[in-house]
């Protein structure tokens, strides 16, 4: 554990909590892509199957259980409790494609051809692109509520901080997992446009609206 990793995890945790608070307080999931949330739930489910086989630390186990439980809770809120507020007609990204491509890539490029390892690799590839339906939705509507943009900023920062963590681990521990690193770079890269808008608009108290 190093400081980048810890702040990254806290940022991830903050993102999830911000999203749950936004939905719960406003009694609405408007502006949130249910498809991205489904993909994140699939990511956590496939990656954290090792909860049953591999103990790392109390911290690790607690975080995994929280991420799993909160992602299923989010899905429940979007598709059941507050489904009347879900903007289905704006959430039109073909997310099946992301799953298919991630499955194929995981089968072709992995560290070891075993079930758990391929599921882990799939979750890494899928996570890299899971935000695309959400970003697509914002592009389509041309705006996002400020709480939604805080959520996206925290979520995007998390993988960026992991990149610093990987650089640190490479130099200090000699540890390098290029599947996670390359996917993490792609994942962070997808947020670049959003980060720019967030820093230039939301941080100055304006709403996140896309330039026409």
């Amino acid at each position: 554990m190093n400081v980048f990793r810890l702040i990254g995890d806290m940022s991830h945790l903050a993102a999830i909590i911000i999203l749950l608070i936004k939905i719960w307080r406003s009694r609405s999931c408007s502006g949130i892509s249910g498809k991205s949330q489904l993909l994140f739930t699939a990511v956590f489910t496939c990656r954290y199957l090792d909860l049953f086989t591999n103990f790392v630390s109390i911290y690790n186990t607690t975080m995994k259980i929280f991420f799993l439980a909160s992602s299923y809770a989010t899905i429940y809120l979007i598709f059941m409790k507050f489904k009347a507020t879900y903007n289905r007609n704006h959430d039109t990204f073909r997310f099946e494609l992301l799953i298919v491509v991630s499955v194929i890539l995981a089968l072709l490029i992995n560290h070891e051809f075993s079930a758990t390892e391929i599921l882990w690799t799939f979750s890494i590839y899928l996570e890299a692109v899971a935000i695309l339906p959400q970003l697509f939705m914002i592009t389509k509507t041309g705006e996002a509520e400020s709480i939604t943009s805080h959520y996206l900023f925290a979520l995007g920062s998390y993988r960026g901080l992991y990149i610093l963590n990987w650089i640190y681990r490479y130099y200090v521990e000699g540890h390098l997992d290029w599947i996670a690193v390359l996917s993490g770079i792609v994942q962070t890269g997808l947020y670049c446009d959003f980060f720019y808008l967030y820093i230039t608009r939301v941080m100055k108290g304006k709403n996140l609206t896309l330039p026409a």
Binding site: N60, T116, W120, D177
Partner: peptide, 10 residues
């Protein structure tokens, strides 16, 4: 097996 080496991340 790689898992014990790097799947300590979230």
């Amino acid at each position: 097996y790689h898992a014990d080496r790097y799947h300590d991340e979230l």
